[in-house]
Write a protein that binds this DNA or RNA. Structure first.
Length: 583
DNA sequence: ATAGGGTTAG
């Protein structure tokens, strides 16, 4: 049988006279040199077209497609690509479809709309179409093209394709990882609307996303949704919720975390190691070491064995609460229990030594890492670099950065932030700015911390207008300023005595939807006091109290040092007791 | 396809 006969009914010239079995054999054995001469007279595109029609194995078609693409530098176009995909899908070669789609979304930058259009032209079996579109969404997620994944998710509905639960869950979880809360909530709502039945995992991912966005009440409410759908919250649900409260909650958050733990018990779900580790870390971060230790004991009472994560959290908590000795003792206890410290343990204790300016000890631990067959990572280096910079040893900091490069551990944004902050501390903002350029030449994007450091640097140099230029630059580059950005800039203008400019920044901040916080008020009150306008400072102080913002230690210091000393009695009687008791 | 620990800015 020859292709010529088979394709006689297909319009166009017949250019090949190889039998199908010969072609199949050549393709499967990849005897390209024997095939090549035939393609001098028949264009590869036409050859491929004929392969589509004769019904040979889809994998062989794919092989020819990929070989000819490379060999003749052909770019086949999306429509042909769509045909290959349909052929693969129809013969259930799903892993091939997957890797083919990976290449499509990774290498070639087509718009989602053109990919959709051509995929749908490639075949007319609706169920194959739905499958390919579903796998396309997954391919975008796998390749971290989350924006495209969302667009494909939207278009799937427009074209009437129902996506699988698996793809939707993957998309949801990717959106959580990228902190895209708005899109995550959209996808979740759409799933319900499109009647894609969620499972418990869907709800757990959704809760995690809400927690990461600080929407704790909304996250709590999902528990009711879970029950309404006929599911029961599981250990992952509760652990996620507890962690959300530990990390994002405000004052008294551990009470709510504890309340969730009790609810968990009431629902007959036993906490596991992760539950306790989460709680212990939460208490440590709240500087409540007593509660952390109690949770540790409770964990053992429940028959659960504290693991590496437990010890790392506790050691970290102890070092951050000035209990370096206890931290070292716990390290020893851990080793005695034959739990081997990992790189996190080392980083935590190195940080502990660094914070106490015990650089020799820190360095000794650092040298020990390699002896234990562990590998230092960027965090290890960043911890040391930051400490050296803060200790005024900039050369050491830069030397460590070079060591990193030599050892193939790439400096990241934080590395540069530590160095840039060091230069700013030494009043060398110009050099700091050059480092910003250097990091961008390395392809590292400055983040919010970088900008905040540099803005602070210029402000300290009484060059607040230069700092404001940086604010403009970050806005242009799509880095969203936060409270620290605005407060730092306001402080700069205030220290220059330019209250007018400072108030303008406040207006700008509020236009961006950020309300003044305690630091904002402290900065402005102090600014007014500095130029002798104590009444204005007092007015702001009252405004702050009216808004329900709690004054902090700095507020009281300002009142005591800037107002009382100038003989001005602030109009905040209820707080005067605190002012005198804090002095 | 879902949950826990480490570095940088007021």
């Amino acid at each position: 049988m020859v292709i010529g006969k088979l394709t006689a009914s297909v319009p166009g010239p017949i250019l090949l006279s190889l039998s199908i079995s010969t072609i199949s054999e050549l393709l499967s054995k990849q005897h390209w040199s024997e095939l090549k001469p035939h393609l001098r007279t028949t264009k590869p595109t036409i050859f491929l077209d004929q392969l589509f029609n004769v019904g040979i194995d889809s994998e062989l078609v794919l092989r020819f497609f990929q070989w000819s693409q490379k060999e003749f530098k052909i770019s086949y176009g999306l429509e042909t690509t769509g045909k290959v995909l349909h052929l693969l899908a129809n013969s259930k070669r799903y892993s091939k479809v997957r890797s083919f789609l990976d290449k499509l979304v990774k290498n070639e930058k087509h718009t989602v709309s053109s990919v959709f259009h051509s995929l749908l032209l490639g075949g007319d079996r609706p169920c194959a179409n739905a499958l390919i579109i579903d796998m396309l969404v997954l391919a975008y997620v796998r390749n971290l093209e989350i924006h495209s994944a969302c667009e494909a998710f939207r278009r799937a509905q427009n074209y009437g394709f129902k996506l699988s639960l698996n793809s939707c869950n993957s998309l949801l979880s990717a959106l959580v990882k990228e902190n895209k809360t708005g899109e995550m909530e959209y996808v979740y709502k759409e799933m319900i609307k499109r009647r894609i039945q969620p499972n418990l995992t869907t709800f757990n991912i959704f809760i995690n996303g809400l927690c990461k966005a600080g929407k704790l009440n909304k996250a709590d409410d999902v528990i009711e949704d879970i029950k309404a759908w006929g599911f029961s919250p599981n250990i992952v649900t509760y652990n996620t919720l507890i962690d959300g409260h530990c990390k994002k909650g405000s004052a008294g958050k551990m009470y709510r975390a504890d309340a969730i733990l009790k609810e968990m018990f009431a629902n007959k779900i036993c906490p596991n190691e992760i539950t306790f580790n989460t709680l212990i870390d939460g208490f440590c971060k709240e500087e409540n070491m007593l509660a952390a230790k109690k949770a540790f004991e409770e964990m053992e009472r429940q028959g659960l064995e504290p693991n590496l994560v437990t010890y790392n959290s506790l050691i970290n908590g102890l070092t951050n609460n000035g209990k370096l000795d206890e931290a070292i003792a716990l390290w020893d206890k851990m080793v005695a229990l034959s739990l081997k410290p990992n790189i996190v343990t080392y980083n935590v204790l190195i940080n502990g030594f660094c914070k106490k300016k015990m650089m020799k000890e820190a360095r000794k631990l650092f040298d020990d890492i390699a002896k234990q067959n562990l590998v230092p990572n960027a965090i290890t280096f960043n911890t040391l670099i930051d400490a050296f910079c803060k200790d005024g040893m900039m050369e050491e900091g830069f030397a460590l950065r070079n060591t990193m490069l030599n050892e193939g551990i790439f400096p990241n944004v934080s590395t540069y932030n530590c160095l840039i902050a060091g230069l700013c501390r030494n009043q060398n903002v110009r050099a700091a700015n050059e480092l910003l350029n250097e990091m961008e030449n390395y392809g590292l994007k400055a983040d919010i911390v970088t900008y905040n450091i540099l803005i602070g640097g210029w402000c300290k140099d009484s060059e607040s207008s230069k700092a404001e230029k940086l604010l403009g630059r970050m806005l242009n580059l799509g880095v969203k300023p936060n409270h620290i950005t605005y407060n730092t800039l306001m402080d700069g203008y205030c220290m220059e005595g330019n209250l007018k400019a400072a108030l303008k920044v406040r207006t700008l901040m509020e236009k961006e939807g950020k309300r003044a916080n305690v630091v904002t008020y402290n900065v402005l009150i102090k600014g007014f006091c500095k130029i002798g306008k104590l009444e204005d400072g007092n007015r702001l102080l009252n405004e702050m109290l009216e808004k329900g913002l709690n004054p902090n230690r700095t507020t009281y210091d300002i009142v005591r040092l800037e107002m009382l000393e100038e003989g001005f009695i602030p109009d905040i009687e209820g707080h005067l007791y605190n002012i005198s008791s804090m002095s």
